[in-house]
């Protein structure tokens, strides 16, 4: 019974985070929101008795995907500065 309560809480936070990720104007914060979704997803995997998946999702989903997104944004901002000056 405890599990379902946890899942419902985590699920609703994730849905809110998803809406935020889609509708926030600032790209960096929407990337962060996407990272949060993955993080909470790894928690849910724990509840679903799938530890391997939880670790992978935590490491890759929230960790690396967010890093890759930020790198991409840095690259794009980088290009803007080069061309401006």
């Amino acid at each position: 019974m405890l599990n379902t309560v946890f899942i419902i809480i985590l699920g609703s936070i994730m849905l809110v985070a998803a809406f935020l990720a889609v509708y926030i104007k600032n790209l960096v914060s929407s990337v962060i929101a996407a990272g949060i979704i993955s993080l909470l997803a790894s928690l849910i995997y724990l509840l679903l008795a799938a530890p391997d998946v939880a670790m992978t999702e935590a490491a890759i989903g929230s960790g690396l995907t967010t890093v890759v997104f930020l790198l991409a944004l840095k690259n794009i901002k980088q290009k803007e500065e080069d061309t401006d000056d």
Binding site: D52, M55, T56, G63
Partner: peptide, 25 residues
């Protein structure tokens, strides 16, 4: 540690590799 004990504890090659990658990051 993670990918050495892949067959015993949860986690394994992928997870260990990613941790190393974040270290290198």
């Amino acid at each position: 540690y993670i990918f050495m004990h892949g067959h015993l504890t949860p986690g394994g090659g992928f997870q260990g590799g990613v941790v190393i990658a974040s270290g290198i990051l």
